[in-house]
Design a protein around this nucleic acid. Sequence first.
DNA 1: TTGGCGACGTTATAACGTAACATTATTGGA
DNA 2: TCCAATAATGTTACGTTATAACGTCGCCAA
Lengths: 163, 163
Amino acid sequence: MSRRPRSAFPSPDHDHRGCSASAIARAETLCASRKLRFTAIRRAVLKAVWQSHSPVGAYDILAKLNAKGADHAPMAVYRALDFLLENGFIHRISSQNAFIGCPHPETEHDSQLLICRRCGTVAEIDSAPVTRALKAAAPGFAIEQRTIEISGVCPHCRSGAHA
Amino acid sequence: MSRRPRSAFPSPDHDHRGCSASAIARAETLCASRKLRFTAIRRAVLKAVWQSHSPVGAYDILAKLNAKGADHAPMAVYRALDFLLENGFIHRISSQNAFIGCPHPETEHDSQLLICRRCGTVAEIDSAPVTRALKAAAPGFAIEQRTIEISGVCPHCRSGAHA
DNA sequence: TTGGCGACGTTATAACGTAACATTATTGGA
DNA sequence: TCCAATAATGTTACGTTATAACGTCGCCAA
Ligand SMILES: [Zn+2]
Ligand SMILES: [Zn+2]
Ligand SMILES: [Zn+2]
Ligand SMILES: [Zn+2]
C-alpha cells in the first residue's frame, strides 16, 4: 500500500531529479513489458517533458534537444509526443498547447489537471466524485474523452513567498 | 419561470435562426446596458460564431466575413473574439482551437462543454455538483478558471440516424 | 476644439502542427 | 543467415492558429 500524498502538488524545493529519473525508468520498464519501443528520441522527449512539473511546449522540447547538438525537425518531436500520449506517459494541456508528464502511467485513469498560474506547477488528480458528477450532469451523453484543466493558485504559492 | 430543457442539446432540426437572432439581440441589449460598444465587426463575428451549435475557428470566421466582401486581417477577428470572450458572449474550446456562442451571457457562470464527435454539436451545462466536486478534489488550491470539455456522442446521435 | 482613449487597419512575424514521401532500423520468419 | 514486412525516423514543405507593433480614425467629454 502506498501512502496518500497530502497534496498532489510537489513541494517547490523537492529533489526533482528523482521525479524525472523515476519517470523515465518506469517508462522504460513499461515499454519493455508492453513490447513498445522506447527509442532514443522518445526517451529524450520524455526527459524534456519531465524537466519540471510545468507544462512544456513542443518547440521548447525541440529547442532543448537541438541545444544538445541534435538537429531535429518539429515532426520528430511531434511523433514522439504522439507516442507518449497514446501510451499514457504524458498528458496534453490544451489550454496551453503544452505537455506534462503523467505521474502514474502504469494504469489507465481519468485526470484532472490543476495548474498554478504563479509557479506553473501542474498537479494531476483523479477524483472519482468529479467523474461521477460529470456523468450525472450529462444524462444521455456518452462520454468518451475529458479535458479538465483548472487554473488557480497552488497551496505552496498561497501560503509562502508572496513576494 | 422557464421550463428546464430535457437536454442541453438542441434538437438537430430545431429552427436555428431563432437561436442566432436572439443571441445577437441579447448581446445588443447587454452591451447597451453595460456601456460596451457592440460594433459592426463584433456583431459580425458573433453572428459567425452563432452560425451553428458547433465550434467555429477564427479563420473560418475570417473567411466567412471576407466572403461577404469585407477584407479583414486575422487581427480584426481575434480582437473581436477577445471582446466577446471577455464579456462572456462566447466561450473558447481549447481542445479544438475554436469558439462557441454562450447561450446565457446575462450572468456569470461556470460552464462545462459537452461536444458531440458525430454531429459536432456543443451543449453548455453548468452543474453545481461538478463545480463542488472539483473544489472538494483540490483542497488548498484556489480555483480561478476552469476548462472542462467533454467529448462523446450526444443523445440525438445515439438514438437516431446511425447511418 | 482638442486631447485622450478605445476601436480598427495594416504589416509582419511568431508559434503551433501536419502532409507526403524517402530512408533507415528492427524484427521475425524462410 | 538473409529477406521481406513493418516500424521508426529523416526531410522538405506547407498549413493553421495567434500575436506584436505601430499608425489611423472617430467618438466623447473637458
Ligand atoms: Zn518533481
Ligand atoms: Zn504554485
Ligand atoms: Zn440553434
Ligand atoms: Zn451529436
